[in-house]
Write a protein that binds this DNA or RNA. Structure first.
Lengths: 255, 255
DNA sequence: TGAATAGTGTCTATAAGACAATATCCC
DNA sequence: GGGATATTGTCTTATAGACACTATTCA
Protein backbone atom coordinates (compact mmCIF):
# COMPACT_ATOMS: atom_id res chain seq x y z
CA UNK A 1 0.00 0.00 0.00
CA UNK A 2 2.94 2.27 0.56
CA UNK A 3 2.72 5.32 -1.64
CA UNK A 4 -0.63 4.33 -3.09
CA UNK A 5 -3.18 6.94 -3.87
CA UNK A 6 -6.16 6.48 -1.62
CA UNK A 7 -9.24 7.95 -3.31
CA UNK A 8 -12.24 8.59 -1.12
CA UNK A 9 -14.78 6.08 -2.28
CA UNK A 10 -17.81 8.16 -1.47
CA UNK A 11 -17.54 9.82 -4.85
CA UNK A 12 -20.64 8.07 -6.12
CA UNK A 13 -23.08 7.89 -3.25
CA UNK A 14 -26.72 6.87 -3.40
CA UNK A 15 -29.51 8.84 -1.83
CA UNK A 16 -30.09 7.37 1.60
CA UNK A 17 -33.29 6.70 3.49
CA UNK A 18 -32.90 6.11 7.18
CA UNK A 19 -35.16 5.93 10.17
CA UNK A 20 -34.70 7.73 13.45
CA UNK A 21 -35.91 6.36 16.79
CA UNK A 22 -36.05 8.32 20.02
CA UNK A 23 -35.55 7.13 23.59
CA UNK A 24 -37.34 9.83 25.55
CA UNK A 25 -36.47 9.56 29.22
CA UNK A 26 -38.02 11.28 32.21
CA UNK A 27 -38.00 10.73 35.94
CA UNK A 28 -41.47 10.37 37.43
CA UNK A 29 -41.94 9.78 41.14
CA UNK A 30 -38.29 8.97 41.54
CA UNK A 31 -38.30 6.31 38.82
CA UNK A 32 -36.81 6.45 35.37
CA UNK A 33 -39.44 6.24 32.63
CA UNK A 34 -39.31 5.94 28.85
CA UNK A 35 -41.87 6.93 26.25
CA UNK A 36 -43.21 4.03 24.18
CA UNK A 37 -46.24 3.10 22.12
CA UNK A 38 -47.99 -0.09 21.20
CA UNK A 39 -47.53 -1.05 17.59
CA UNK A 40 -50.78 -1.19 15.67
CA UNK A 41 -49.36 -2.92 12.61
CA UNK A 42 -47.15 -5.86 11.72
CA UNK A 43 -44.41 -6.72 12.32
CA UNK A 44 -44.37 -6.93 16.09
CA UNK A 45 -48.00 -5.83 16.26
CA UNK A 46 -49.05 -5.25 19.85
CA UNK A 47 -45.50 -4.94 21.09
CA UNK A 48 -44.15 -1.72 22.49
CA UNK A 49 -41.87 0.42 20.37
CA UNK A 50 -39.99 3.69 20.51
CA UNK A 51 -41.39 6.67 18.60
CA UNK A 52 -39.67 6.91 15.26
CA UNK A 53 -39.95 8.38 11.79
CA UNK A 54 -38.41 7.83 8.41
CA UNK A 55 -35.88 10.48 7.50
CA UNK A 56 -37.43 12.89 5.03
CA UNK A 57 -35.48 14.09 1.99
CA UNK A 58 -33.17 16.90 2.98
CA UNK A 59 -34.04 16.57 6.66
CA UNK A 60 -31.32 16.37 9.28
CA UNK A 61 -31.27 13.49 11.71
CA UNK A 62 -31.65 15.89 14.61
CA UNK A 63 -34.73 17.40 13.00
CA UNK A 64 -36.23 13.99 12.36
CA UNK A 65 -35.78 13.09 16.01
CA UNK A 66 -37.54 16.27 17.08
CA UNK A 67 -40.29 15.61 14.55
CA UNK A 68 -40.82 12.13 15.96
CA UNK A 69 -41.46 13.57 19.41
CA UNK A 70 -43.68 16.34 18.13
CA UNK A 71 -45.72 14.08 15.85
CA UNK A 72 -46.18 11.30 18.37
CA UNK A 73 -46.37 13.04 21.69
CA UNK A 74 -46.88 16.72 21.00
CA UNK A 75 -43.58 17.60 22.62
CA UNK A 76 -41.42 20.50 21.44
CA UNK A 77 -38.10 21.91 22.52
CA UNK A 78 -36.93 18.70 24.13
CA UNK A 79 -33.21 18.12 24.67
CA UNK A 80 -32.08 15.56 22.07
CA UNK A 81 -28.68 14.03 21.40
CA UNK A 82 -27.53 11.32 19.02
CA UNK A 83 -27.05 7.95 20.66
CA UNK A 84 -25.91 5.28 18.19
CA UNK A 85 -26.67 3.89 14.76
CA UNK A 86 -28.16 0.41 14.81
CA UNK A 87 -27.73 -1.74 11.74
CA UNK A 88 -27.79 -5.39 12.78
CA UNK A 89 -28.87 -7.33 9.68
CA UNK A 90 -31.75 -9.13 11.37
CA UNK A 91 -33.10 -6.25 13.41
CA UNK A 92 -36.15 -5.79 11.18
CA UNK A 93 -37.85 -8.92 9.77
CA UNK A 94 -38.92 -6.98 6.67
CA UNK A 95 -35.34 -6.57 5.53
CA UNK A 96 -32.26 -4.54 6.10
CA UNK A 97 -33.01 -1.33 7.93
CA UNK A 98 -30.71 1.11 9.66
CA UNK A 99 -31.87 3.45 12.36
CA UNK A 100 -30.09 6.33 14.01
CA UNK A 101 -31.17 6.38 17.64
CA UNK A 102 -31.44 9.58 19.67
CA UNK A 103 -32.11 10.00 23.33
CA UNK A 104 -34.11 12.82 24.84
CA UNK A 105 -34.55 14.14 28.35
CA UNK A 106 -37.54 16.07 29.62
CA UNK A 107 -38.84 17.20 32.98
CA UNK A 108 -41.76 15.18 34.24
CA UNK A 109 -44.00 18.22 34.64
CA UNK A 110 -43.42 19.12 31.00
CA UNK A 111 -44.64 15.79 29.69
CA UNK A 112 -47.31 14.71 32.17
CA UNK A 113 -49.70 17.21 30.71
CA UNK A 114 -49.45 15.44 27.38
CA UNK A 115 -49.55 11.85 28.51
CA UNK A 116 -50.77 9.70 31.32
CA UNK A 117 -47.74 8.22 33.03
CA UNK A 118 -47.73 4.46 33.29
CA UNK A 119 -51.30 4.13 32.15
CA UNK A 120 -51.37 0.56 30.92
CA UNK A 121 -54.59 1.04 29.01
CA UNK A 122 -53.24 3.84 26.86
CA UNK A 123 -51.42 3.13 23.63
CA UNK A 124 -48.83 5.83 24.31
CA UNK A 125 -47.28 5.86 27.73
CA UNK A 126 -44.33 6.56 29.92
CA UNK A 127 -43.25 3.16 31.20
CA UNK A 128 -40.81 2.49 34.05
CA UNK A 129 -37.40 1.38 32.81
CA UNK A 130 -35.76 -1.67 34.32
CA UNK A 131 -32.15 -2.66 33.68
CA UNK A 132 -30.82 -5.99 34.78
CA UNK A 133 -27.13 -5.29 34.41
CA UNK A 134 -25.29 -3.91 37.41
CA UNK A 135 -22.72 -1.15 37.32
CA UNK A 136 -21.54 -0.04 33.92
CA UNK A 137 -21.65 -3.35 32.10
CA UNK A 138 -24.53 -2.42 29.84
CA UNK A 139 -27.13 -4.52 28.08
CA UNK A 140 -30.79 -4.44 27.12
CA UNK A 141 -33.45 -2.74 29.21
CA UNK A 142 -37.07 -3.64 29.91
CA UNK A 143 -40.13 -1.45 30.12
CA UNK A 144 -42.56 -2.47 32.84
CA UNK A 145 -46.34 -2.45 32.91
CA UNK A 146 -48.54 -1.62 35.87
CA UNK A 147 -48.05 -5.01 37.43
CA UNK A 148 -44.29 -4.72 37.22
CA UNK A 149 -43.98 -7.29 34.43
CA UNK A 150 -41.85 -6.57 31.38
CA UNK A 151 -43.66 -5.37 28.28
CA UNK A 152 -42.50 -7.10 25.13
CA UNK A 153 -40.50 -4.69 23.03
CA UNK A 154 -40.40 -4.60 19.23
CA UNK A 155 -37.28 -4.94 17.09
CA UNK A 156 -34.03 -4.26 18.98
CA UNK A 157 -35.59 -1.49 21.02
CA UNK A 158 -34.61 -3.17 24.28
CA UNK A 159 -30.97 -2.78 23.24
CA UNK A 160 -31.51 0.83 22.19
CA UNK A 161 -33.12 1.78 25.50
CA UNK A 162 -30.38 -0.04 27.39
CA UNK A 163 -27.68 1.86 25.57
CA UNK A 164 -29.49 5.14 26.21
CA UNK A 165 -29.58 4.45 29.93
CA UNK A 166 -25.91 3.53 29.89
CA UNK A 167 -25.03 6.70 27.98
CA UNK A 168 -27.00 8.97 30.28
CA UNK A 169 -25.49 7.31 33.32
CA UNK A 170 -22.04 7.93 31.97
CA UNK A 171 -22.65 11.55 31.09
CA UNK A 172 -24.42 12.46 34.30
CA UNK A 173 -21.25 13.26 36.22
CA UNK A 174 -19.34 15.28 33.69
CA UNK A 175 -22.14 17.06 31.83
CA UNK A 176 -25.21 19.08 32.67
CA UNK A 177 -27.85 16.76 31.21
CA UNK A 178 -29.28 16.11 34.66
CA UNK A 179 -30.84 19.56 34.68
CA UNK A 180 -32.89 18.72 31.58
CA UNK A 181 -35.03 16.50 33.78
CA UNK A 182 -35.95 19.25 36.23
CA UNK A 183 -38.07 22.39 36.15
CA UNK A 184 -36.39 25.81 36.15
CA UNK A 185 -36.20 25.99 39.95
CA UNK A 186 -35.67 22.96 42.14
CA UNK A 187 -34.41 21.95 45.58
CA UNK A 188 -31.20 19.94 45.91
CA UNK A 189 -33.17 16.93 47.05
CA UNK A 190 -34.94 16.70 43.69
CA UNK A 191 -31.64 16.95 41.84
CA UNK A 192 -30.29 14.09 43.91
CA UNK A 193 -33.43 12.06 43.34
CA UNK A 194 -32.99 12.51 39.58
CA UNK A 195 -29.42 11.35 39.78
CA UNK A 196 -30.35 8.33 41.86
CA UNK A 197 -33.13 7.33 39.48
CA UNK A 198 -30.79 7.45 36.51
CA UNK A 199 -27.88 5.71 38.20
CA UNK A 200 -30.07 3.08 39.79
CA UNK A 201 -28.42 3.45 43.17
CA UNK A 202 -28.53 5.70 46.19
CA UNK A 203 -26.07 8.53 46.60
CA UNK A 204 -24.52 9.97 49.71
CA UNK A 205 -26.53 13.03 50.65
CA UNK A 206 -23.68 15.02 52.17
CA UNK A 207 -21.14 14.58 49.44
CA UNK A 208 -23.75 15.05 46.73
CA UNK A 209 -24.67 18.40 48.23
CA UNK A 210 -21.03 19.39 48.57
CA UNK A 211 -20.19 18.35 45.03
CA UNK A 212 -23.12 20.16 43.46
CA UNK A 213 -22.62 23.37 45.38
CA UNK A 214 -18.89 23.31 44.61
CA UNK A 215 -19.47 22.70 40.91
CA UNK A 216 -20.56 26.27 40.34
CA UNK A 217 -23.46 25.00 38.23
CA UNK A 218 -26.10 26.01 40.75
CA UNK A 219 -27.40 29.47 41.56
CA UNK A 220 -29.63 30.23 44.53
CA UNK A 221 -32.93 31.67 43.37
CA UNK A 222 -33.66 33.20 46.76
CA UNK A 223 -37.00 31.41 46.65
CA UNK A 224 -37.86 28.45 48.86
CA UNK A 225 -40.21 25.52 48.59
CA UNK A 226 -43.86 26.21 49.38
CA UNK A 227 -46.54 24.21 51.11
CA UNK A 228 -44.16 21.71 52.60
CA UNK A 229 -44.86 19.94 55.84
CA UNK A 230 -41.21 20.37 56.75
CA UNK A 231 -38.56 23.06 56.59
CA UNK A 232 -38.71 24.41 53.03
CA UNK A 233 -35.51 23.96 51.06
CA UNK A 234 -33.73 26.59 49.01
CA UNK A 235 -34.60 26.49 45.33
CA UNK A 236 -31.74 26.56 42.86
CA UNK A 237 -31.55 27.09 39.15
CA UNK A 238 -29.03 25.84 36.62
CA UNK A 239 -26.23 28.33 35.95
CA UNK A 240 -26.02 28.67 32.19
CA UNK A 241 -22.45 29.92 32.27
CA UNK A 242 -20.09 27.05 32.85
CA UNK A 243 -17.39 27.90 35.37
CA UNK A 244 -13.76 27.38 34.43
CA UNK A 245 -13.01 23.67 34.42
CA UNK A 246 -10.56 22.60 37.13
CA UNK A 247 -7.31 21.68 35.38
CA UNK A 248 -5.84 18.48 36.83
CA UNK A 249 -2.78 19.05 38.89
CA UNK A 250 0.55 17.81 37.60
CA UNK A 251 3.87 17.97 39.34
CA UNK A 252 3.39 21.20 41.15
CA UNK A 253 6.11 22.01 43.62
CA UNK A 254 5.15 21.71 47.21
CA UNK A 255 5.44 25.12 48.98
CA UNK B 1 -52.27 12.40 21.92
CA UNK B 2 -53.76 10.45 24.76
CA UNK B 3 -54.88 7.04 23.66
CA UNK B 4 -53.63 7.50 20.13
CA UNK B 5 -52.22 4.60 18.28
CA UNK B 6 -48.58 5.28 17.48
CA UNK B 7 -47.60 3.16 14.48
CA UNK B 8 -43.92 2.71 13.85
CA UNK B 9 -43.30 4.61 10.67
CA UNK B 10 -40.47 2.44 9.48
CA UNK B 11 -43.01 0.12 7.92
CA UNK B 12 -42.05 1.17 4.42
CA UNK B 13 -38.35 1.81 4.37
CA UNK B 14 -36.12 2.42 1.39
CA UNK B 15 -32.87 0.63 0.83
CA UNK B 16 -30.16 2.81 2.26
CA UNK B 17 -26.68 3.53 0.99
CA UNK B 18 -24.29 5.00 3.49
CA UNK B 19 -20.59 5.63 3.68
CA UNK B 20 -18.30 4.71 6.53
CA UNK B 21 -15.18 6.69 7.45
CA UNK B 22 -12.53 5.54 9.89
CA UNK B 23 -10.36 7.58 12.25
CA UNK B 24 -7.43 5.23 12.79
CA UNK B 25 -5.34 6.44 15.72
CA UNK B 26 -1.93 5.31 16.88
CA UNK B 27 0.74 6.73 19.16
CA UNK B 28 4.13 7.05 17.46
CA UNK B 29 7.11 8.44 19.36
CA UNK B 30 4.86 9.71 22.10
CA UNK B 31 2.60 11.63 19.72
CA UNK B 32 -0.94 10.86 18.66
CA UNK B 33 -1.19 10.14 14.93
CA UNK B 34 -4.09 9.57 12.55
CA UNK B 35 -4.20 7.73 9.25
CA UNK B 36 -5.11 9.92 6.27
CA UNK B 37 -4.68 10.00 2.51
CA UNK B 38 -4.51 12.69 -0.12
CA UNK B 39 -7.58 12.82 -2.29
CA UNK B 40 -6.79 12.17 -5.94
CA UNK B 41 -10.17 13.29 -7.25
CA UNK B 42 -12.63 16.14 -6.86
CA UNK B 43 -14.12 17.38 -4.68
CA UNK B 44 -11.41 18.48 -2.30
CA UNK B 45 -8.74 17.08 -4.60
CA UNK B 46 -5.34 17.24 -2.93
CA UNK B 47 -6.78 17.61 0.52
CA UNK B 48 -6.32 14.97 3.16
CA UNK B 49 -9.19 12.66 3.99
CA UNK B 50 -10.02 9.73 6.22
CA UNK B 51 -10.15 6.27 4.66
CA UNK B 52 -13.73 5.41 3.85
CA UNK B 53 -15.92 3.14 1.77
CA UNK B 54 -19.50 3.04 0.61
CA UNK B 55 -21.58 0.55 2.53
CA UNK B 56 -22.12 -2.53 0.38
CA UNK B 57 -25.53 -4.22 0.16
CA UNK B 58 -26.03 -6.48 3.15
CA UNK B 59 -22.80 -5.36 4.77
CA UNK B 60 -22.72 -4.27 8.38
CA UNK B 61 -21.29 -0.90 9.29
CA UNK B 62 -18.64 -2.58 11.43
CA UNK B 63 -17.59 -4.74 8.51
CA UNK B 64 -17.41 -1.75 6.18
CA UNK B 65 -15.13 0.02 8.64
CA UNK B 66 -12.83 -3.00 8.77
CA UNK B 67 -12.92 -3.23 5.00
CA UNK B 68 -11.90 0.41 4.67
CA UNK B 69 -8.79 -0.25 6.73
CA UNK B 70 -7.96 -3.46 4.94
CA UNK B 71 -8.47 -2.02 1.47
CA UNK B 72 -6.62 1.20 2.11
CA UNK B 73 -3.86 0.26 4.48
CA UNK B 74 -3.64 -3.50 4.52
CA UNK B 75 -4.59 -3.62 8.19
CA UNK B 76 -6.58 -6.47 9.69
CA UNK B 77 -7.86 -7.25 13.15
CA UNK B 78 -7.82 -3.65 14.28
CA UNK B 79 -9.98 -2.54 17.21
CA UNK B 80 -12.91 -0.58 15.79
CA UNK B 81 -15.83 1.11 17.49
CA UNK B 82 -18.65 3.29 16.19
CA UNK B 83 -18.14 6.99 16.81
CA UNK B 84 -20.98 9.10 15.44
CA UNK B 85 -23.14 9.56 12.38
CA UNK B 86 -22.47 12.80 10.49
CA UNK B 87 -25.24 14.21 8.34
CA UNK B 88 -24.83 17.97 8.12
CA UNK B 89 -26.57 19.01 4.88
CA UNK B 90 -23.58 20.84 3.44
CA UNK B 91 -20.88 18.39 4.42
CA UNK B 92 -20.42 17.11 0.86
CA UNK B 93 -20.64 19.63 -2.02
CA UNK B 94 -21.99 16.91 -4.33
CA UNK B 95 -25.19 16.64 -2.32
CA UNK B 96 -26.63 15.12 0.78
CA UNK B 97 -24.46 12.35 2.14
CA UNK B 98 -24.47 10.63 5.49
CA UNK B 99 -21.44 8.89 6.91
CA UNK B 100 -21.13 6.68 9.95
CA UNK B 101 -17.75 7.38 11.50
CA UNK B 102 -15.73 4.72 13.33
CA UNK B 103 -12.55 5.09 15.28
CA UNK B 104 -9.83 2.50 15.43
CA UNK B 105 -6.80 2.02 17.65
CA UNK B 106 -3.66 0.13 16.70
CA UNK B 107 -0.18 -0.30 18.16
CA UNK B 108 2.49 1.64 16.34
CA UNK B 109 4.60 -1.44 15.67
CA UNK B 110 1.63 -3.12 13.99
CA UNK B 111 1.12 -0.33 11.48
CA UNK B 112 4.61 1.03 10.84
CA UNK B 113 5.39 -2.01 8.76
CA UNK B 114 2.61 -1.05 6.40
CA UNK B 115 3.10 2.68 6.20
CA UNK B 116 5.76 5.29 6.56
CA UNK B 117 4.89 7.41 9.56
CA UNK B 118 4.69 11.11 8.88
CA UNK B 119 6.24 10.84 5.44
CA UNK B 120 4.98 13.96 3.79
CA UNK B 121 5.80 12.72 0.31
CA UNK B 122 3.58 9.63 0.58
CA UNK B 123 -0.07 9.76 -0.31
CA UNK B 124 -1.04 7.60 2.64
CA UNK B 125 0.42 8.54 5.96
CA UNK B 126 0.13 8.68 9.70
CA UNK B 127 -0.01 12.37 10.51
CA UNK B 128 0.36 13.95 13.94
CA UNK B 129 -2.95 15.08 15.42
CA UNK B 130 -3.27 18.54 16.88
CA UNK B 131 -6.25 19.73 18.87
CA UNK B 132 -6.70 23.37 19.77
CA UNK B 133 -9.35 22.98 22.41
CA UNK B 134 -8.24 22.56 25.99
CA UNK B 135 -9.71 20.12 28.46
CA UNK B 136 -12.88 18.34 27.42
CA UNK B 137 -14.52 21.11 25.44
CA UNK B 138 -14.18 19.40 22.08
CA UNK B 139 -13.94 20.76 18.56
CA UNK B 140 -12.18 20.09 15.28
CA UNK B 141 -8.68 18.64 15.04
CA UNK B 142 -5.82 19.29 12.65
CA UNK B 143 -3.39 16.90 11.02
CA UNK B 144 0.13 18.27 10.74
CA UNK B 145 2.72 17.87 8.03
CA UNK B 146 6.46 17.52 8.51
CA UNK B 147 6.93 21.22 9.06
CA UNK B 148 4.27 21.28 11.75
CA UNK B 149 1.76 23.14 9.59
CA UNK B 150 -1.84 21.97 9.39
CA UNK B 151 -2.78 19.89 6.36
CA UNK B 152 -6.04 20.96 4.78
CA UNK B 153 -8.70 18.36 5.49
CA UNK B 154 -11.53 17.40 3.17
CA UNK B 155 -15.23 17.55 4.01
CA UNK B 156 -15.95 17.67 7.76
CA UNK B 157 -13.13 15.30 8.57
CA UNK B 158 -11.56 17.79 10.97
CA UNK B 159 -14.72 17.55 13.06
CA UNK B 160 -14.75 13.77 12.84
CA UNK B 161 -11.15 13.46 13.99
CA UNK B 162 -11.78 15.94 16.79
CA UNK B 163 -14.74 13.94 18.04
CA UNK B 164 -12.71 10.74 17.88
CA UNK B 165 -9.99 12.27 20.04
CA UNK B 166 -12.58 13.53 22.49
CA UNK B 167 -14.24 10.11 22.66
CA UNK B 168 -10.99 8.25 23.20
CA UNK B 169 -9.95 10.72 25.88
CA UNK B 170 -13.19 10.17 27.69
CA UNK B 171 -13.03 6.38 27.52
CA UNK B 172 -9.39 6.09 28.48
CA UNK B 173 -10.01 6.09 32.21
CA UNK B 174 -12.93 3.73 32.48
CA UNK B 175 -12.23 1.30 29.67
CA UNK B 176 -9.37 -0.78 28.40
CA UNK B 177 -8.92 0.85 25.00
CA UNK B 178 -5.48 2.14 25.99
CA UNK B 179 -4.06 -1.36 25.65
CA UNK B 180 -5.04 -1.47 21.98
CA UNK B 181 -2.22 0.97 21.30
CA UNK B 182 0.48 -1.21 22.83
CA UNK B 183 2.17 -4.50 21.94
CA UNK B 184 1.41 -7.62 23.97
CA UNK B 185 4.09 -6.88 26.57
CA UNK B 186 5.02 -3.38 27.66
CA UNK B 187 6.58 -1.47 30.53
CA UNK B 188 4.47 0.87 32.64
CA UNK B 189 6.33 3.86 31.21
CA UNK B 190 5.02 3.09 27.72
CA UNK B 191 1.48 2.76 29.04
CA UNK B 192 1.79 6.16 30.67
CA UNK B 193 3.26 7.64 27.52
CA UNK B 194 0.25 6.38 25.55
CA UNK B 195 -2.14 7.93 28.04
CA UNK B 196 -0.30 11.24 27.97
CA UNK B 197 -0.29 11.35 24.18
CA UNK B 198 -4.03 10.78 24.04
CA UNK B 199 -4.92 13.16 26.84
CA UNK B 200 -2.55 15.84 25.62
CA UNK B 201 -1.14 16.48 29.07
CA UNK B 202 1.38 14.99 31.44
CA UNK B 203 0.32 12.63 34.18
CA UNK B 204 1.70 12.13 37.65
CA UNK B 205 4.04 9.17 37.47
CA UNK B 206 3.48 7.90 40.99
CA UNK B 207 -0.27 7.94 41.02
CA UNK B 208 -0.46 6.58 37.49
CA UNK B 209 1.61 3.59 38.53
CA UNK B 210 -0.48 3.07 41.65
CA UNK B 211 -3.75 3.36 39.79
CA UNK B 212 -2.73 0.94 37.06
CA UNK B 213 -1.31 -1.70 39.40
CA UNK B 214 -4.37 -1.41 41.63
CA UNK B 215 -6.76 -1.76 38.71
CA UNK B 216 -6.08 -5.46 38.38
CA UNK B 217 -5.83 -5.03 34.60
CA UNK B 218 -2.09 -5.68 34.51
CA UNK B 219 -0.25 -8.96 34.89
CA UNK B 220 3.49 -9.23 35.31
CA UNK B 221 5.01 -11.23 32.49
CA UNK B 222 8.15 -11.99 34.49
CA UNK B 223 10.13 -10.65 31.55
CA UNK B 224 11.99 -7.36 31.64
CA UNK B 225 13.04 -4.84 29.04
CA UNK B 226 16.14 -5.74 27.01
CA UNK B 227 18.97 -3.68 25.65
CA UNK B 228 18.24 -0.67 27.77
CA UNK B 229 20.93 1.70 28.90
CA UNK B 230 19.25 1.88 32.28
CA UNK B 231 17.64 -0.47 34.74
CA UNK B 232 15.19 -2.56 32.69
CA UNK B 233 11.57 -2.25 33.72
CA UNK B 234 9.17 -5.10 34.32
CA UNK B 235 7.02 -5.95 31.30
CA UNK B 236 3.29 -6.30 31.85
CA UNK B 237 0.49 -7.67 29.75
CA UNK B 238 -3.17 -6.80 29.68
CA UNK B 239 -5.26 -9.08 31.90
CA UNK B 240 -8.12 -10.28 29.72
CA UNK B 241 -10.33 -11.10 32.70
CA UNK B 242 -11.81 -7.95 34.10
CA UNK B 243 -11.68 -7.86 37.88
CA UNK B 244 -14.86 -7.14 39.81
CA UNK B 245 -15.75 -3.48 39.43
CA UNK B 246 -15.48 -1.51 42.66
CA UNK B 247 -19.02 -0.67 43.69
CA UNK B 248 -19.30 2.92 44.93
CA UNK B 249 -19.76 3.15 48.63
CA UNK B 250 -23.07 4.39 49.95
CA UNK B 251 -24.05 4.88 53.52
CA UNK B 252 -22.05 2.11 55.04
CA UNK B 253 -21.97 2.09 58.80
CA UNK B 254 -18.70 3.13 60.30
CA UNK B 255 -17.17 0.26 62.36
C1' DT C 1 -44.13 20.18 71.35
C1' DG C 2 -43.15 16.67 67.81
C1' DA C 3 -42.35 15.04 63.10
C1' DA C 4 -39.78 15.75 59.15
C1' DT C 5 -36.37 17.48 56.33
C1' DA C 6 -32.81 21.38 55.49
C1' DG C 7 -28.43 22.84 56.42
C1' DT C 8 -23.70 23.00 58.99
C1' DG C 9 -19.59 21.23 61.19
C1' DT C 10 -16.37 17.61 62.19
C1' DC C 11 -14.00 13.29 61.95
C1' DT C 12 -12.29 9.40 59.12
C1' DA C 13 -10.94 6.75 55.04
C1' DT C 14 -9.21 6.84 50.48
C1' DA C 15 -6.82 8.42 46.47
C1' DA C 16 -3.61 11.57 44.38
C1' DG C 17 0.46 14.61 44.41
C1' DA C 18 5.16 15.36 46.13
C1' DC C 19 9.62 13.71 47.61
C1' DA C 20 13.15 10.85 49.11
C1' DA C 21 15.73 6.70 49.23
C1' DT C 22 17.14 2.54 47.30
C1' DA C 23 17.70 -0.88 43.34
C1' DT C 24 19.54 -2.20 38.72
C1' DC C 25 21.04 -1.83 34.48
C1' DC C 26 24.88 -0.17 30.99
C1' DC C 27 28.87 2.45 30.06
C1' DG D 1 31.88 4.65 39.84
C1' DG D 2 28.46 7.57 37.18
C1' DG D 3 24.28 8.20 34.56
C1' DA D 4 19.68 6.88 33.96
C1' DT D 5 15.45 4.94 35.11
C1' DA D 6 12.78 1.49 38.05
C1' DT D 7 10.71 0.55 42.35
C1' DT D 8 9.37 1.26 47.13
C1' DG D 9 7.99 3.96 51.02
C1' DT D 10 6.43 8.09 53.42
C1' DC D 11 4.28 12.50 54.02
C1' DT D 12 0.74 15.92 52.50
C1' DT D 13 -3.50 17.36 50.46
C1' DA D 14 -8.11 16.95 48.50
C1' DT D 15 -12.38 14.60 48.38
C1' DA D 16 -15.99 11.46 49.79
C1' DG D 17 -18.45 8.92 53.39
C1' DA D 18 -20.26 8.91 58.07
C1' DC D 19 -22.31 11.17 61.99
C1' DA D 20 -23.82 14.56 65.09
C1' DC D 21 -26.05 18.68 65.83
C1' DT D 22 -28.80 22.82 64.82
C1' DA D 23 -32.56 25.22 62.04
C1' DT D 24 -37.13 25.74 60.23
C1' DT D 25 -41.53 24.59 58.80
C1' DC D 26 -46.34 22.69 59.76
C1' DA D 27 -49.63 20.05 62.44
Amino acid sequence: MKGDVMPHETDQIDRVALSVDVVLLSVVDGRLHCLAARRAAAPHRGRWALPGVVLAPGETLQHAAARALETRAGLRGVFLEQLFTFDAPGRDPRGRTITVAYYGLVAADAILGELEAGDGASEVALAPVDVDWPGESGGPASLLDDSGAARTLAFDHADIIGLAVQRVRGKLDYSTIGFELLPAAFPLRDLQSIHEAILGRELNRDSFRRRMLASGLLVETGERERDTTYRPAMLYRFAAEVPQPPTPRTRKVRP
